[in-house]
Each structure stands twice: as C-alpha cells, then as structure tokens.
C-alpha cells in the first residue's frame, strides 16, 4: 500500500510538471470541416490541439521583447517587420510598463514577430485550418448560426478608433474568446491561399498559379464574412504589421 501511494504521488507530480505550458489554453477536439476555399477534397480533417483562449496582449508581448532585444522596436530589421512595427508603443519609453503593458491584444506585429513569440512560449501559431475550425464554434449558449455573421458585420461598421481588451466580445462553445470582432489574427500558413489579387478571377487558373492548384471556388458564395477574411489574409506579407492585426498561439497535444 505504501508503494502504491508513492507511485500515485510520483505520477501526479509528473503530470503537474506539464501544467505551466497550458496556462490560458483550451483543447479543441479533433474534427473536420468544409473549408471556404474548395480544394481537392471537400472536407479537411483537423487533429485535436490546444488554443490560447485569448489573444496575446501588450503586456505579454512586452515581456517577450524585454527578453529578446532583437524584437524591440529599436532593433527590429526591415526583413522581419515593416516600419510601423509596434508603432502604438511610446517611441522612447516603450520599456515603461505603466505606458505599454495593458490587456489589449497586441497589434502592429508581423508574422515573424508573432511566430517568434509563440516559439518563445514553447507554442506555435495555429495553422489556417486549425484557426478556421476553432472559429466555427458559435457563442456560448447560442443555437443561431447567423450570430457570427452579425458579430462580424457590426465589427466592420464599428468606429475605427474603438479599442477593447481581450475577452470582451464573445466566448465560443470551445471556451475561446473573440475569434471575431476584436482583431484579425495571424495564422502560421496564411500564405497558403494561392490566388491572384483580383478576387474576381475565381474561375480561371491564372497562368502564374498551377502545379496541382484546384480552380479556386468558394464553397459558399454567400459567405461574405469568409470572403472578407480570406481577402484580408491575401493582402498580407510576412513582414506586414497593421493596427487591427494581432495573434494567439496554439500547441499540439502530442508535444506534452
């Protein structure tokens, strides 16, 4: 009996060792979904994974920048972020926590910066399919599939200057906050959508894009909200930063 108790104690300690890496993350169960851009298959399978319940905040990112000087606004290289990188942080006083660290989602960060942050946390950026799959979930206690459309449409028409903290728009049925309505979010493979910049060329296979690319049709031409989101990703490059673009991290479950 003594031995059994000891073994139990050791086991619980071992599992306890893994807890810190999962702070503020919730599991998204495995499943499949019909992606907005029709590919060669109709549905895409998504493995179970962990996702941050909220976006990375200014406070979180400040901690990262302080520990990794090359990502500070003074030292950043143009290849990794454009000239508007962290432009909302006070120029000569960004280290000052009282001025910079708050609970709003960090914006004006590039893919490279977001990717580096997630890795620093032993996490990674979510893939496009993971993000889209997690975003499908309706708000808690809702059965109305139109609610997400409403949230998006009222976000597009809200006054530009509004700034809100994390966890302020809606919590979805996976326990994830504000997939829509707060900021756009980086995904690991945002440049996976092979398309021309003119969104009307959906039927043609433009001469520059081939090698197995299926003709690009949206799976639902009335899903304007997805058109908007995919166009947004299509306008981005890896070193771009914008005032409404932030991110959250993910983690594969096997890595534990």
């Amino acid at each position: 009996m003594q031995n059994f108790k000891v073994i139990l104690l050791i086991c619980s300690l071992l599992t306890g060792l893994n807890l810190p890496a999962q702070e503020n993350m919730k599991p998204i169960p495995a499943g499949s979904y019909k992606p907005f851009i029709k590919g060669l298959t109709e549905k895409v399978a998504v493995e179970a994974f962990l996702l941050d319940t909220v976006q990375v905040t200014n406070q979180d990112f400040l901690e990262f920048v302080k520990a990794n000087e090359q990502w500070s606004p003074d030292k950043i290289k143009a290849l990794f972020a454009d000239s508007a990188y962290l432009i909302h942080w006070p120029k000569n006083d960004w280290q000052n926590e009282s001025k910079t660290a708050n609970q709003e989602p960090v914006v004006n960060v590039s893919w490279f910066a977001a990717n580096a942050y997630c890795k620093w946390k032993n996490k990674r950026l979510p893939s496009l399919h993971e993000w889209e799959f997690a975003a499908l979930a309706l708000p808690m206690n809702s059965l109305d599939s139109n609610e997400l459309t409403q949230i998006n449409h009222s976000w597009y028409s809200r006054k530009n200057s509004t700034r809100q903290p994390i966890g302020s728009v809606y919590e979805n049925q996976y326990g994830i906050w504000d997939m829509f309505g707060l900021v756009w979010e980086w995904v690991y493979d945002f440049n996976s959508v092979v398309s021309s910049n003119d969104s009307r060329n959906k039927e043609e296979i433009a001469s520059g894009f081939f090698c197995g690319s299926a003709s690009l049709n949206a799976s639902d031409a009335s899903d304007y909200v997805s058109f908007i989101r995919y166009s947004y990703r299509g306008s981005l490059k890896g070193n771009y930063t914008t005032r409404k673009l932030g991110f959250r991290c993910a983690k594969s479950i096997e890595e534990n």
Partner: peptide, 21 residues
C-alpha cells in the same frame, strides 16, 4: 516563402500548389 512572398499549399496527394516567381 514569406520573405519572397510566394504563396503555396501542400495538397492531399503530396503535391504543392504554388505561385511561380
């Protein structure tokens, strides 16, 4: 690919759909 702004995607059959630059 990001630095070159070449979009690409791996397909189910292992091939890649990609921009040509």
């Amino acid at each position: 690919s990001l630095v070159l702004d070449i979009s690409y995607e791996q397909l189910e059959n292992g091939a890649f759909a990609h921009a040509n630059k």
